[in-house]
Nucleic acid binder design. Structure first.
Lengths: 200, 200
DNA sequence: CGCGTTACATTGCAGTCGCAACGTAAAACG
DNA sequence: CGTTTTACGTTGCGACTGCAATGTAACGCG
């Protein structure tokens, strides 16, 4: 064998270049040659690490998901142990919003992938898989607050959780398309949290 | 001159074909020849009515916007005169959700266009233009209800309006990507409306 | 009845695409 | 030390793209 190389590292290098191209020029500008040029390698090398373009896309999609996950866990750990449910959810959901340039770029790519996967069911499965546990987790937080008298009762916790996530998702889209500002988005999110977490 | 033809009708015919292709195979599958084949015409004719592909895309984008607008006004007129703000908003927002096959197809196309416009600012302007008045209108409804004691006070009406729209948008995305069901989406929307329209 | 304008259809060209095929160099392994 | 396997680089092919160019037929107008 020649130089011993870390396959995963090379693939991540290429995927990063792909994401840069997608964030700058859109997903339709992603081609083997463009990605290779962006990564500073030859298209032959890209082909060596990904047998097909679709395989490369799938991998890049996974990288986006990992980054989002990392952003969330970072927001959570930054909060310290045993935070109040409302503060906890505020941190998690705000961490999901594309507020800075880095997360904005990722958001644009995620949006492009969403449209890409909408007509490609096998690729879409990867995007769908972590939503249910997210809903369950948030619903659990709401139920805890309800039991402590810190959240409005008489509301289905799952509906409230889905609503919270949907608001965040919608605000994210408005941010990505410059239909609102970070300040207004955060204010709207807080207003919604105030709806959920209030005396009944 | 030869046969007198309705230009706008022909352009709409072509745009409809474009939207069918986009809904079925994604926006990346939209090419002059594919659209022409789908419309049952020659690519030369497409070129005759649209000087460039981008012009064709812009026009199709406008058609999507018109359809959405029509769906909303249809939902409103179906409601009769002077409805209660809550019923009114329920009808409008539910009308925005991609619940049947037709609106689902349109939603998929709109999603694709969103990603398309995200890296094409001049095309994105067309998507952004009607959001502010929508927010203003909903905020007005909320303020009316607040004055009548039918909605919770002490909340910024603009934030509440933005939240309502964001929830709808987010639920729409979950529906398009099959991450939720129409029943759950409507239930979540109603739960959010219950948050806004309740004694303070 | 010409005539010019409009409504298409056909063809072709330059560029890009994904991908296969092949070549080469280097290093681990016997 | 030779062999084999891996890691690339290069080239090219067939298909597709947007678009320009050109041709042709039909109809309104003077």
């Amino acid at each position: 064998m020649p130089k011993v190389v870390d396959h995963h590292e090379r693939r991540t290098l290429i995927a990063d270049a792909l994401l840069r191209v997608a964030a700058r020029d859109g997903l339709e500008a992603v081609s083997l040659r463009h990605v290779a040029t962006e990564a500073g390698v030859t298209s032959g090398m890209v082909q060596h690490y990904f047998r097909t373009k679709d395989e490369m896309m799938q991998f890049a999609l996974g990288v986006v998901r990992e980054r989002n996950e990392a952003r969330i866990t970072a927001a959570v750990t930054r909060l310290g142990p045993t935070p109040a449910p409302r503060d906890f959810l505020q941190a998690v959901l705000a961490g999901l919003l594309p507020l800075d340039d880095a997360s904005r770029a990722d958001g644009l790519v995620a949006l492009a992938f969403l449209a890409y996967a909408a007509v490609r069911p096998e690729a879409g499965a990867s995007l769908r898989q972590d939503a249910p546990q997210m809903v369950a987790y948030i619903a659990d937080q709401i139920r805890t607050a309800q039991a402590a008298g810190a959240a409005r009762t008489g509301v289905d916790s799952e509906s409230a959780a889905t609503g919270l996530l949907a608001v965040t998702e919608g605000l994210g889209m408005y941010l990505l398309t410059a239909q609102t500002t970070p300040e207004k988005a955060l204010k709207t999110l807080d207003a919604h949290l105030a709806f959920v977490f209030s005396a009944s």
